[in-house]
Structure formats: structure tokens, C-alpha cells
Design a protein around this nucleic acid. Structure first.
Lengths: 166, 166
DNA sequence: CTGATTGTCTTAGTGGCTAAGATATGGTAT
DNA sequence: ATACCATATCTTAGCCACTAAGACAATCAG
């Protein structure tokens, strides 16, 4: 009887759904905690990370990417600039455009102490899996991400289709 | 001697980190999309889900759980009550206390059409894994969640220790 | 019964958001 | 060049959820 040593399949599936939801929750909460500790709002940190990840971009591109209005972007840049985490750089070829340039060194100095221990812990956890297991996890995430993106697209399309394009 | 470098291994680990971050992002974005489509703010939906998940509770308990002030909770309940998604129920034994009772039927009617297709898709994805693979995924999530919670606790403790207890 | 405590609501003030329009630059047709 | 329209960002007014502080009502302790 394998049911002695193995929980029923459906129960395991339900367990995965539960812990993956918890993962989203704890990850969001950790992000907010880090932001508050870094003296930023959660959204400001989120968009700062986006700027760093995508590299320098214009205010308009960021507005489109985040789904925020240009007015909100102006305020966002103002706040980040005051903290020396980004700077405005006016384009030479088109002086209307303003590039938002991340000052990565300053951001790292603030964030790294907060994230480093956690990052190491997760690395060790990941190293406890073998290559095949990691590929399973990778495959799991890829499927969910694909489903999430298509659901976002589909639901947005149903009615007022505006929002972030992250 | 550092020659035991498995070339693909570190790359796979990095890939898992990337897709798990994307998972958090797409999940959050999907949640916001669903909320907007349901006529709720993302935070209102988040807290409504919490009320449903934990079952009925008093306003003060919700305030403690979410990290919001009691004033914010009053506003939250007002908004959800106006939409008939929760109701206030004054405790018999202590008439200061107000229980927030979720009206699950109304919430389901609004949310289910939005979430059902996605839920089915994810179920099918999960069913494509065998039991052992699901247990691997489960183990992965459990480790991360534990690390996240301890990091939240540790970072919060470092300075102003206030926030949600979700 | 009195005074302190508890649980929720109310009020005033703050901050980030949107919508709309101002400002400045760039592109195009004549 | 000139006039005109388009584009990119900033500015302004108003909104809404939040916090902080305190009001109010119910409960508890001596």
C-alpha cells in the first residue's frame, strides 16, 4: 500500500497550492519590510528595482511599463532623486526626454545589508537540491508564470484594459 | 582547488531565482488585475481574502493581523460592507466588539468567474507532475517560506518593529 | 460607585495617485 | 523660415486610503 508512505495525490496538489500562495504572501511581506527598513515605500522600491533591472529608460517608458500616469512618474523620480538613488539625465538628441539613470552603488549600499543574509540562506536551500529537482522547480514556475501572464492579459482585455506591462 | 564547478548547476540555480521572482511579480500583478476587475482595490481584496481565510474576527484582531490602524480598519469594513461582502455583527458578550463576518456567497459570485479558468489551468499544470516531483516543489516552498518569515522577523526587529503578522 | 482600561469610531492632516492642462521641444508641410 | 501639430515631461487640483490622536461607549477592578 503506497498510501501508507505517500499522501494521496490530490492532497499533495492542494498542499502545493497552499504553500505557493504563502510564498507569494511572505515574499510580498518581506519586500515591504525591506522597503520600510530602507526608508522607501514598497511601491517606490518596486519601481526602483524595475529601473535597475531594465536599465536606464525615459520617464514615458517607465510610465507605460508601470501603468502609472506621467504625473505620478514625476513624483516617483523626485522622491528617488532626493534620496540619490536615481538621477535625471536629459537626452542630447531630444531635450524633451529625460532618462532615469539608476545610481546602483547607492541602492546597493542601502539594500545589500538587508537582503544579503536572506539571499545566502536561499542559495544554500537551493544547493540542497540536485540538478533534476531544480529543473522540476523551474518547469513548475515556467508553467505558472505563463498561465498568470495569459490570465492577466485575458482578464484585462475583458473590460477596461489598462495596467502595468511588467 | 575550486575545480568542482558544475557549469550548468549554478546557471540552473540562477534560473530558479529568476523565475521565482517572476512568479511573485506575475502573481501580484494577477491579483491586482482581478481586484480591479472585481471593483476592489488590491489591498481591499487582499484583506477580504484574509477575513475569509481566517474566518470571522473582530476589528481589533484584523488591525493587529494586518498592521493597519483601527481607523483604517473602520474604513476598510465600511467599503466592504457597502459592497455587501462583509457585515458587522456586534458581540453579545461584549458590545464594544464588532465581528467582521464575511459574506462568502457574494464574494464568490464576483471572484469565481475571474479566477476559475486560471485555477483550472494551474490544476492541470500540477497534475502533469508526479507525486515525487510535487513533494520536491513542496519542500522547495517550505524552505523559502521559512526563510522569508525569519528574515521578516529579523529585519523588523532591527528597527521599528511594526507591521503585519500575516 | 469610581476610575482605569478596552474596543471601535471620528477627525485632522499627509502622501501618492489620477485627470487635465501647461510648458517646452521636435517634426512636417508649405 | 513659418505655422501648425505632435510628443515628452511637469504642474495643478482634487481624491482617497492611510496615520495619529483623541472621543465615545462598554467593561473591569477595587
Amino acid at each position: 500500500m503506497e498510501s501508507y508512505s505517500h499522501p494521496p495525490f490530490n492532497i499533495t496538489i492542494q498542499a502545493v497550492r497552499t504553500v505557493s500562495r504563502q510564498f507569494a504572501n511572505t515574499t510580498t511581506l518581506l519586500h515591504e519590510t525591506i522597503a520600510r527598513q530602507a526608508g522607501l515605500s514598497p511601491t517606490d522600491l518596486k519601481y526602483l528595482e524595475l529601473i535597475i533591472q531594465k536599465g536606464q529608460m525615459t520617464a514615458g517608458e517607465l510610465a507605460h511599463l508601470t501603468g502609472l500616469t506621467t504625473g505620478a512618474i514625476t513624483g516617483l523620480i523626485d522622491r528617488l532623486q532626493k534620496k540619490k538613488l536615481v538621477k535625471r539625465q536629459y537626452a542630447k538628441d531630444d531635450r524633451r526626454k529625460v532618462f532615469i539613470v539608476p545610481i546602483t552603488a547607492n541602492t546597493s549600499r542601502i539594500l545589500e545589508p538587508l537582503t544579503h543574509p536572506q539571499s545566502e540562506k536561499i542559495l544554500r536551500h537551493l544547493q540542497s537540491f540536485d540538478e533534476g529537482e531544480l529543473l522540476t522547480i523551474l518547469h513548475f514556475f515556467n508553467g505558472i508564470n505563463e498561465a498568470n501572464l495569459s490570465a492577466i492579459h485575458q482578464i484585462s482585455r475583458a473590460k477596461g484594459g489598462q495596467g502595468a506591462t511588467l
